[in-house]
Simulated assay, not measured.
Amino acid sequence: MDSVTPDYHHEMLEKDYLACCGSIQFAKEMALASPFPSLDHAISAARDIWFNKVDVNGWLEAFSAHPQIGGSTSSHHTKSPASAQWSKVEQSTALATATSSSLQELSDWNTCYRQKFGFVFLICASGRSTAEILDELKKRYPNRPIVEFEIAAQEQMKVTELRLAKLFSTKGTVTESGKQFSAVIAEKAEEDRVGIIGGHLAASSEDAAGKVTQFPARTRPPITTHVLDVSRGSPAAGVDVCLQMWKGTQPCPMFGEADIGSWIFQGLSTTDKDGRSGQLMSIVDVLNPGIYRISFNTGKYCPNGFFPFVSIVFEIRESQKLEHFHVPLLLSPFSYSTYRGS
């Protein structure tokens, strides 16, 4: 790294940020503001730049970098290969829950939307099914253009925040609100996710050829969660959630021993208005047995609460690898509980 010139390093930063948001103006401003001491600082800067420094043309440029939801990302032009790959992963739930009729309906509504507003329908698709996306598109279609333009910008920021988290995790550790999540993402994990989507899309042609399809029968990831704020009696929206798997030298973590670097990142998401997290891992038939940990950034959600973050550790045995594991969090400012749901 010592041989890298400052100008070349600066150029690499711009490319990184362009993958997070397709506006060149945004990428340049983020590169100028770098480096950031934590993910929180990067997101704060990104919000300020996106809403206060990027002009209308920059917003439209970022919108155009997104493929149509339900369409082909491989044929869509984008300035960044990483952005194209992330789009595939973000749409994996939608594609896994789609049927030929729902995809056609989504395509028809996308066409109507673009004709009315002049840009692609934009929504943070991570963890959302085709039905959910289609319902949201129909709800937003009657909006006035100026209102819809602002909503699209807000959705773009949600996508940017998720991608910044992925970008930071590939560079090392992700730090949020002073708390550390071990977040090293292997390129193979991303390839597996994209492969699952490709298997789903190719299923019909393989059946016609008499081949055995290998895409998963599940319609959701084998590990899911939601957060309920019991002090308010309502879902907890906006809680950051991280899923990790134990890969230490010992078969399982030992009580009281340091475990930094032994937890391997699986996925990162934020709970929606119903308190449900987005997709935290690939949709696979067979789950790898082992020790898993779901961490919740409760300090960010409830700054005055007792718990800066909550981690739930659980084991999935060989005999359970085909089962579904729903591990919710019931939270109040001074207590929490959990259980295995369905």
Rank of each mutant, 00 (worst) to 15 (best):
M157W: 05
V194D: 07
A208N: 05
E190Q: 11
Q180A: 13
V184K: 12
L106W: 09
S231N: 14
A189G: 15
E187M: 12
V212E: 10
L162W: 04
K171P: 02
L228M: 06
R193N: 07
G172W: 02
T213Y: 00
V174H: 02
V184H: 12
H226N: 14
F119M: 05
R193I: 11
I151H: 10
S204A: 15
P145R: 04
I133N: 01
D108N: 11
L164R: 01
V159R: 06
G210I: 01
A183L: 02
S231C: 13
V212A: 07
A131T: 05
A217D: 13
K138P: 00
S107G: 10
S177N: 14
A217K: 07
F168Q: 15
E150C: 14
S182V: 02
I123C: 07
T225S: 05
I197C: 11
T224K: 06
A153H: 08
A152L: 01
L228Y: 01
K188A: 15
A208R: 06
V227N: 00
T130Y: 02
G210V: 01
E148G: 03
S177F: 04
V230T: 05
L106D: 06
I196Y: 11
K171E: 13
I223M: 03
E187G: 13
G178N: 03
W109V: 04
L134G: 08
L167Q: 09
P221K: 08
G127K: 08
E176W: 06
H200Q: 07
K166D: 13
D192Y: 06
L162N: 10
D135A: 09
R114L: 14
L122A: 03
D108E: 14
T225L: 02
S231R: 06
I133G: 01
D135F: 10
A209I: 07
K116F: 08
I197N: 08
I197L: 14
P145H: 05
G210A: 01
S204E: 14
F181L: 04
P221Y: 12
A165C: 11
E190P: 00
P145F: 03
A209C: 09
A217Y: 15
A217T: 05
N110L: 11
V227S: 03
E105A: 14
F117Y: 09
A153D: 04
V194F: 04
A165D: 02
A131N: 08
E148I: 01
I223N: 06
E136T: 08
D192N: 12
T173Y: 06
D192K: 11
A152R: 04
A153E: 10
S107A: 15
Q214S: 12
A209M: 14
V194I: 11
P221C: 15
C112T: 05
S204Q: 07
Q214L: 13
I197Y: 13
I197E: 10
R220S: 10
D229T: 03
R193M: 12
G199P: 01
L162E: 15
A153F: 03
R218E: 00
S129F: 02
R144L: 07
G118N: 00
S204F: 12
E187L: 15
F119W: 12
E155T: 00
N143L: 01
A186W: 15
Q154P: 04
K179Y: 07
V147A: 04
G118S: 02
Q115C: 06
Q154N: 09
L122M: 10
E155S: 01
A165G: 04
G198Y: 14
Q154T: 09
A209N: 09
A217V: 08
I185E: 09
G199Q: 12
A125N: 01
A203F: 03
L122I: 13
L228V: 07
E136Q: 10
V194A: 04
G198S: 14
